[in-house]
Design a binder for these strands. Structure first.
Length: 760
DNA sequence: TTAGGGTTAG
């Protein structure tokens, strides 16, 4: 009785089978909604019965009479639905049991339409095998069996197979399966799995080929959000087995995805933009964001912030402006980070008042957007104020901070203020702030330490700095490479090279390894002190630990060798530099040209200059200055003037104050103060400001010719320009004017200087 | 959001 009932139910089911079949061939994840409940129950009872009969001894025997199992499964004129066979198979104990069932179905079915059922059964076998040990080999073997029996894989079976083979790293087998899958069965889920597997196996080009087909406008398998996740994730991945997706591809792909209404989420978009900006590809980042905007994707402040940061670093203020305008137009609400970026940029370019205005508007919401500042923003402004010497205003911002909830001054706040006071030479106030932060339990860090040490060193208190370091070390704040760089530099500056070397050794011994800057600092100090052997040995140490010399460091060495008259060593260094692939710059050539011309080797100096030009470098004002100076030194002022005229006209390098100083000084010393005065007029015309060196040179020239009126005129001009006299000026003028009884003029000059100093 | 270095002509 059970059988007959089942047979009739089967008939009922068969009516639905075309629909079920269609589902099978295009089935994607997630699976289609479950059938009706009564159908469910019918199926369940059929499956239960089938499973019971499969335990019976006559299953798999080739009896001539119809068995109950055959009756159940094949009684009517057509086979039962593939869905049923698959569900029976799924409940078998193993893939080998399932394979036996497959063979049973194959040999017992008389129907022509059994093929879809067999495919479906095979899918279930794959499912079982995929959960068994050694699944990839089992699946591969089963795939062979299916092919042997001409049973096409369902798309889900193919998907499962590919995923499993991919996990086992079987690249070639994956490619074979992909090639053999019936193209008409492929769906988006299948393509997603293929792409994912290919990426993981490092087959980027194969993955992109599949993706390209998905992205075609008339694609049978259009991309969905999962496709997006796979691709955008792959774009951001750091470690690649194959090649990475290049920037151009990224922009193109995001744009094509957009045509299918698939977009990176805010996090992915922001990450992609950040990645481009870090590689200085703000143009691509810009295109990326705007593609998403144009095709209607969601763009939030975070992504815009990433781009604003990149544009700011590249100094592209025009695009920054455009982007903020677009944000307004598109109703993308700026947040505290957006304002932070803008305010930071203004502070860094010393436009602190502009920054304060933006800050005020933001806090009041007077421009339509009200945002509460955070500690970072306060710190940015405080730093900005301190960097332009407005520490007191910085302190009043700290008071504002205190009055705002959850915005207490922190270590960074104090560090900025301490640096401000140190830079202005108010070391005591910096120390007071240091004491205050300790009282408030805002803990100093190594930056606090270094800021104070640097301040002390720069204001002649090296010993206090060392004492302070020792004190802090004993309290647990250890110095780092920066600390030692500061101290080494400070000792080099006061020509205490031994002490500098001592600190260098001390840091290595105390387990703080020097970084490249520490090496560069010491090399420079030694080179300037003329200790080239020591400098060379530090260079060797630097190389031993794996650092490289950069252009400036090579220049320092070349300059050092020149100073010691070791031209051969200088050339050797230049050669090494070129061989190491470090391009000499104009400073390198200028150093050599200066040395060569000063030692009278003008032919070689000009040859080096030609080489410089050949290498694509333009002679600079320093190049011409070096030559002019050398010609003047040997009394060939005409030659110097010739170069001077040439640089302004032919080479289009405008002369600066130093150039004029060299010439004016030489002309005066050469008894040609008239010509020197005409050069001073020339400076006025060209807008080149004279400095104290200019005035000292011309005053000496005027004194030698006793041209008093001209001197008075220039003294007035000095006061006007707030150019402070130095001891040379005073010496020359005092001696001369006293001798000629013009002490009144001198007194007036000193008073004028005092007035101009106080007003300045 | 905070700290360090080195080069050429007077």
């Amino acid at each position: 009785m059970a059988i007959s009932i089942s047979a009739s139910k089967l008939f009922k089911l068969r009516l639905h089978s075309p629909i079920i079949l269609r589902h099978l061939s295009t089935e994607s994840n997630p699976p289609p909604p479950p059938p009706h409940q009564d159908q469910d129950q019918d199926q369940d009872s059929l499956i239960t019965q089938a499973l019971q009969l499969l335990q019976a001894p006559d299953y798999d025997s080739n009896s001539n009479t119809t068995t109950p199992l055959q009756e159940l499964l094949f009684s009517s004129s057509s086979p039962s639905s593939p869905f049923i066979f698959r569900n029976i198979t799924r409940r078998l104990s193993s893939s080998s049991e399932a394979l036996k069932f497959f063979h049973y179905l194959q040999s017992n079915s008389t129907s022509q339409d059994i093929l879809p059922s067999l495919s479906s059964t095979f899918q279930a076998i794959f499912e079982l095998a995929s959960r068994e040990p050694d699944s990839h080999n089992k699946l591969l073997e089963l795939y062979g069996t299916a092919k042997e029996h001409n049973v096409p894989l369902t798309i889900n079976a193919a998907t499962l197979l590919i995923r499993c083979l991919g996990r086992a790293g079987m690249v070639d087998q994956v490619l074979v399966v992909v090639k053999e899958v019936d193209p008409s069965l492929k769906n988006t889920h299948f393509c997603n799995v293929v792409i994912d597997v290919m990426f993981r196996l490092g087959r980027v080009d194969d993955a992109l080929k599949v993706l390209d087909e998905m992205l075609q406008p008339d694609s049978e398998c259009p991309p969905n959000d999962s496709t997006g996740d796979i691709i955008f994730g792959a774009m951001l991945r750091r470690e690649w087995r194959g090649r990475s997706i290049n920037d151009e591809e990224i922009v193109g792909l995001v744009s094509k995805f957009g045509e299918h209404d698939v977009f990176p989420d805010t996090f992915q978009l922001t990450q992609l933009i950040t990645k481009f900006c870090r590689n200085r590809k703000t143009g691509r980042a810009w295109d990326l964001l705007h593609d998403v905007m144009k095709s209607g994707g969601v763009v939030e402040a975070a992504s815009c912030n990433a781009l604003l940061t990149g544009l700011g670093k590249g100094g592209d203020f025009e695009r920054m402006n455009n982007l903020t305008t677009e944000m307004k137009e598109m109703n993308i609400q700026p947040n505290v980070v957006t304002f932070g970026i803008l305010i930071n940029l203004m502070c860094k370019s010393r436009r602190v008042d502009d920054a304060l205005e933006v800050f005020k508007k933001m806090k009041e919401g007077s421009d339509g957007v009200l945002v509460e500042p955070d500690a970072i923003m306060y710190n940015t402004l405080i730093d900005g104020l301190c960097k332009v010497g407005r520490q007191e205003e910085g302190l009043s911002l700290v008071e504002q901070m205190r009055s705002q909830n959850g915005c207490a001054p922190n270590t960074v706040t104090y560090n900025c203020l301490i640096d401000g006071f140190c830079k202005s030479g108010e070391i005591e106030r910096a120390q007071e702030l240091f004491d205050q932060m300790n009282r408030e339990s805002v803990f100093p860090n190594v930056i606090t330490l270094n800021t104070l040490i640097d301040g002390m060193c720069r204001h002649g208190r090296i010993n206090s700095a060392v004492e302070f370091l020792n004190d802090m070390q004993s309290k647990g704040v250890k110095g780092n490479a920066v600390t030692y760089a500061i101290l080494i530099n400070a000792f080099c500056n006061v020509n205490n090279i031994d002490k500098a070397m001592e600190f260098f050794d001390q840091m290595s011994n105390s387990g703080c390894s020097p970084d490249a800057i520490v090496y560069y600092t010491l090399i420079s100090g030694l080179s300037q002190a003329g200790r080239m052997d020591d400098a060379s040995s530090v260079v060797s140490k630097l190389k031993e630990v794996g650092f490289c010399l950069d252009t400036v460091c090579y220049n320092v060495l070349i300059g050092g060798f020149c100073k010691k008259n070791k031209l051969d060593k200088a050339y050797e260094t230049l050669k090494e530099m070129e061989e190491a692939g470090v391009k000499p710059d104009s400073v390198t050539y200028n150093t050599l040209i200066s040395y060569l011309s000063k030692t009278g080797n003008f032919t070689t100096a000009h040859r080096v200059m030609r080489k410089m030009i050949k290498e694509g470098l333009k002679p600079t004002v320093v190049t011409y200055g070096a030559l002019i100076h050398a010609y003047c030194l040997i009394g060939k002022i005409d030659e110097g003037m010739k170069i001077f005229r040439d640089m302004g006209s032919a080479s289009k390098v405008p002369p600066n104050t130093v150039i004029y100083n060299i010439l004016i000084d030489s002309l005066c010393k050469n008894d040609d103060v008239e010509h020197a005065l005409s050069l001073m007029d020339d400076m006025k015309v060209k807008g080149v400001k004279p400095n104290i060196t200019t005035y000292n040179a011309i005053f000496k020239g005027l004194r030698d010719k006793n041209l008093l009126e001209k001197a008075f005129e220039l003294m007035d001009r000095m006061i006007e320009q707030a150019c402070n006299p130095d001891y040379i000026t005073m010496e020359v003028l005092t001696e001369w004017l006293s001798a000629v009884g013009e002490t009144g003029k001198l007194k007036k000059f000193v008073q004028g200087y005092e007035v101009s100093a106080s007003s300045a």
